[in-house]
């Protein structure tokens, strides 16, 4: 049986034979994908060659040209089997120049990353709620204010092991929370996907 990594490689080598990738990979549910393949063991503490961090500088066809925050340049190929996230699953056309991203995939011999997953503008920050006004949580994150916006139909709260709830009314000022969301590029604002709170 071919591995997910092999399928991604062949999708790129075949010039983006996306239909092959999507069919062979089956469901792209994250847990299923990560349960089956997490790649070869790497030296702990070192950079992961199959991972990219940075911001999109330009997009051509199905390739993202990304400048890492460490000023290293990357090319990321998106195929039909690639999952993209931007406050939730999104199609490729939602990727925009200026977006921050993390991406995981398979590094090709020419340096291209064949993407398995691309997370656009994703942030996972912790802090104290300092104010709640309208549909916005004001979060003190490492001494800086981040405005976290509730997005109807998207934002949920998870209190410990309770099921996700669209009702965020239980959140209180001074409470410590973790907010997973999508950063609005070049601002201190985030759209909320999930608020995790212990109580």
């Amino acid at each position: 049986m071919r591995s997910r990594r092999d399928v991604l490689k062949s999708a790129v080598l075949g010039g983006g034979a996306g239909v092959v990738a999507a069919t062979a990979l089956g469901s792209l549910g994250p847990e299923a994908a990560f349960a089956t393949t997490s790649g070869p063991e790497l030296e702990p503490g070192t950079p992961d060659p199959d991972f990219v961090e940075g911001r999109i500088r330009s997009i051509k066809d199905n390739t993202l040209f990304v400048l890492g925050s460490n000023m290293v340049f990357h090319r990321i190929r998106v195929v039909d089997g690639t999952s993209l996230w931007k406050l939730g699953p999104v199609p490729f056309d939602q990727a925009k120049p200026g977006d921050g991203l993390y991406a995981r995939g398979v590094r090709m011999p020419d340096g291209l990353l064949a993407a398995e997953s691309v997370w656009l503008n994703i942030v996972n920050i912790k802090g104290h709620i300092t104010n709640i006004k309208d549909q916005t949580l004001h979060l003190d994150h490492n001494g800086k204010e981040v405005l976290c916006h509730v997005v109807a139909g998207k934002s949920v709260a998870i209190r410990s092991d309770a099921p996700p709830s669209a009702d965020l009314s239980m959140l209180k000022v001074s409470q410590h929370v973790q907010i997973l969301g999508a950063w609005r590029p070049d601002t201190n604002e985030v759209d909320i996907a999930t608020v995790f709170s212990p109580h």
């Binding site: 994250p30 992961d48 997953s117 996972n124 998870i158 997973l180 996907a193």
Partner: peptide
């Protein structure tokens, strides 16, 4: 780190139960 977490789960999950042992 994101590089490490994304080897065992999607970053969009944010939080997961796990087992920790010496490496």
């Amino acid at each position: 780190t994101p590089a490490a977490y994304s080897r065992i789960a999607s970053l969009s999950t944010g939080l997961r139960p796990c087992e920790i042992a010496t490496g």
